[in-house]
């Protein structure tokens, strides 16, 4: 392509500020291995990485593939590695990576389906495996009898662990998952903990066994990478530590386990 004339450049100036993104591209039908593709886009200082990807997809290259929806940090779709750290694309600002380029890659520790889209099948199975629902003691009041009483203090017991958005950043950051993919993992353990600590739940050892059954939980060295990357302050490392404690108590005392 011939270089544009000086006159054309003056009448159509390039955007005053631009930034480069280097995005992982991978289509299993065409690519032997993932590769990086660089895009230069107009920059605003209130743009998040997701805005940049959307700009690319709308105006430059419709084939760039990623998941997103709410763009407000609550649907958990847009987990990706940004400059080597698992982040939500909608919650990380380009201005924190000036002058760029910003390296955007799929979350590690997951198989890649396409570009930034990872395979979350195993994650969904792990979530289900901890029985994340209220297990009653068979004395459930009828609907007409109204609600269980649960004081604000009782809600506070489990509230933090109920804030998980299933974004999987903790799995991407977890050094145990990296070497032991079958480890049930931080979010699932936090979710199990969320129900174990709920005054309406009576699972007892039933659910605890689902997370302590594999040896992997004992491999967790409490490095706390999961809690460090959690965008919602869930602190799965705390849930894992509490679970280890409950489980040990359960082994030592026949009536032990799950204190609320």
């Amino acid at each position: 392509m011939a270089a544009p004339s000086q006159e054309l450049l003056r009448s159509n100036p390039l955007p005053a500020d631009t930034i480069q993104l280097s995005v992982t591209r991978y289509d299993p039908a065409q690519d032997a291995a993932p590769r990086q593709q660089t895009y230069e886009i107009p920059y605003r200082d209130d743009m998040v990485v997701l805005d940049a990807l959307n700009w690319i997809k709308t105006h430059m290259d419709g084939s760039v593939s990623y998941r997103w929806s709410c763009r407000m940090g609550i649907c958990g779709s847009c987990g990706m590695n940004v400059n080597g750290t698992p982040r939500l694309g909608c919650s990380v600002f380009l201005r924190d990576y000036l002058p760029g380029p910003v390296l955007v890659e799929p979350l590690p520790n997951f198989p890649v389906i396409r570009d930034l889209v990872i395979d979350m099948t195993s994650f969904m199975e792990k979530l289900s495996s901890v029985k994340p629902w209220v297990i009653s003691n068979g004395q459930e009041p009828a609907l007409a009898a109204g609600e269980h009483r649960q004081t604000p203090a009782q809600v506070e017991q489990y509230r933090q662990f109920s804030m998980c958005i299933n974004c999987m950043l903790c799995y991407a950051a977890c050094p145990v998952i990296a070497i032991e993919p079958h480890f049930v993992g931080p979010a699932a353990i936090a979710l199990a903990r969320r129900y174990d600590l709920d005054s309406r739940d009576h699972a007892g050892q039933d659910r605890l066994r689902t997370v302590t059954g594999s040896d992997a939980i004992w491999d967790c060295s409490f490095i706390g990478e999961c809690s460090a990357v959690c965008p919602k302050g869930v602190d799965p490392a705390k849930a894992i530590q509490q679970t280890k404690f409950e489980s040990t108590l359960g082994m030592l005392l026949p009536w032990g386990g799950v204190s609320k």
Binding site: L143, E147, R149, P152, Q154, R159
Partner: peptide, 22 residues
């Protein structure tokens, strides 16, 4: 109301009054 109570029985973390009601 029945649906709200059903959600409560299913574990929804409703905000509560000091006496434990929703």
């Amino acid at each position: 109301p029945l649906e709200v109570i059903q959600m409560e029985h299913w574990g929804c973390p409703w905000s509560r009054e000091p006496d434990g009601r929703i």
